Amino acid sequence: MSEPGLTLDGVSAAYRGATVLHEVDLSVARGELLVVLGPSGAGKSTVLRVVAGLEPATAGRVRIAGRDVTSDRPGLRNVSMVFQSYALFPHLTVAENIAFGLEVRDTPRAVARERARTAAETVGCAALLDRRPGQLSGGERQRVALARALVREPDVFLLDEPLSNLDLALRVEMRAELRALHDRLGATMVHVTHDQTEALVLADRIAVLRDGRVEQVGTPDEIWRAPASTFVARFVGSPAMNLLPADGPVRPAGEAPPGVPAEGLQIGFRPEAVAIDRAEGAAATVDRVEVVGEDAYAYLSLAAGQPVVARVPAARRPERGAAVQVGVRWADTHVFHADSGLRYAP
């Protein structure tokens, strides 16, 4: 990895006496966009708050641009944070909101306003400088919040689910703009979200958190194609990856990897890997079918009661209640330890 922009070395944190981060190790390269992904309560926002100095680390070290800032107060860390609520002052204009952080640090007003104008142009809200937040749409408020973060020229941008308050169409538009902004600036960014599609689209790398621990760090392709655990396998993907006992009714076709035992393992396979009406497949019943444009998702029950989801062309979808055969190839499966959930490595 190139020169680090941000490093968390064994960072733990507690809230009301309960540990919420457990020895988190993360390294974000200078100019990288890392997405921290996980369900509610995983500790995602706590990671940002510890980096920003809004929450103390109970153990470990935080380094920004190579400098140990673990004991520094927030104002000395040179980070900018974009909150889910945007946190704009309603009585100030857009220009005043963007420049506020500079003016409270005694930057001359003329300099602060000029930098605010430049930041507004960068994120596409220069035409809004004389308006107040109450006159703006959600997307416009988000742009103002980004400009306010940008104007400080921070070492690290911290984004705490900034797209979650937008409707679906605007989220798609704004995540593309956010990615383009990152690429133009070459900025170090840490973006928190629970939305796996957002993470896969935006990230250079993804850190998946579970219960305050890092479950896996990798590129979007690595997270998708080689999940490190059943948790990652099922959290990333919609519908989730199918998981079944390796010695169960679905016997993958083709040659198994050498040394794979028959017991104590689970096989995982995504809905698009399922073949319906394969001659050598396992018997199943179609419980329901969901049509999504050109695709359909068939929710099946195997004879032993285990659920399986298959993605099929909508034009060839099975009927509810139909008896079908399902199968999958070894090449399309992932293998995990049944007890620990960790990826199996022969």
Results as ranks from 00 to 15, higher is better:
Ala176Asp: 02
Leu265Asp: 08
Thr230Ser: 07
Thr70Val: 01
Val123His: 06
Arg205Ala: 11
Ala13Phe: 00
Ala226Leu: 10
Met1Phe: 12
Ala283Cys: 03
Val79Ser: 05
Pro220Asn: 09
Ala52Arg: 07
Gln216Asn: 10
Phe100Glu: 03
Pro108His: 03
Thr93Pro: 01
Val123Tyr: 07
Val28Tyr: 00
Pro257Gln: 02
Ala95Lys: 10
Arg117Phe: 08
Ala228Tyr: 07
Ala304Glu: 15
His91Ser: 03
Val151Trp: 09
Arg288Thr: 15
His334Glu: 07
Pro56Arg: 15
Tyr299Ile: 12
Tyr86Arg: 04
Leu302Thr: 08
Val324Asp: 06
Leu54His: 04
Leu244Ala: 04
Pro245Tyr: 05
Tyr15Arg: 15
Met174Thr: 00
Val20Ser: 03
Leu129Asp: 03
Arg132His: 06
Val312Pro: 09
Arg270His: 00
Arg343Met: 03
Ile206Ser: 07
Asp72His: 12
Glu121Ser: 09
Ala310Leu: 02
Arg143His: 10
Ile98Ser: 03
His337Arg: 15
Ala147Cys: 10
Gly341Arg: 05
Gly134Asn: 04
Ala240Gln: 14
Pro245Asp: 08
Val217Leu: 00
Leu150His: 04
Pro318Asp: 03
Ala303Asn: 03
Gly53Trp: 06
Arg152Thr: 15
Ala147Pro: 10
Glu177Arg: 13
Arg320Ser: 15
Ala233Val: 02
Ala95Arg: 12
Asp247Trp: 06
Pro249Ile: 13
Gly259Trp: 11
Ile267Pro: 01
Ser45Asp: 12
Phe336Met: 02
Arg63Ala: 07
Leu128Trp: 09
His334Met: 11
Arg73Phe: 05
Val47His: 00
Ala120Tyr: 09
Gln84Cys: 09
Leu168Lys: 15
Gly248Asn: 10
Ala169Leu: 13
Leu342His: 14
Val217Ala: 06
Val309Ile: 14
Ala304Tyr: 06
Pro258Arg: 14
Leu6Cys: 00
Glu96Trp: 04
Ala203Phe: 05
Ser71Gln: 15
Leu181His: 10
Pro249Cys: 13
Pro271Lys: 01
Ala126Phe: 08
Arg213Asp: 00
Ser301Gln: 10
Val47Arg: 06
Arg205Gln: 07
Val190Gly: 01
Ala226Glu: 14
Ser301Asn: 07
Arg225Glu: 11
Thr46Cys: 06
Ala323His: 12
Gly66Tyr: 04
Gly10Phe: 05
Val292Arg: 13
Thr7Lys: 08
Ala126Met: 07
Ala57Thr: 02
Gln306Arg: 14
Ala18Gln: 15
Val214Gly: 02
Asp160Gly: 11
Arg320Gln: 15
Ala322Trp: 06
Ala187Gly: 03
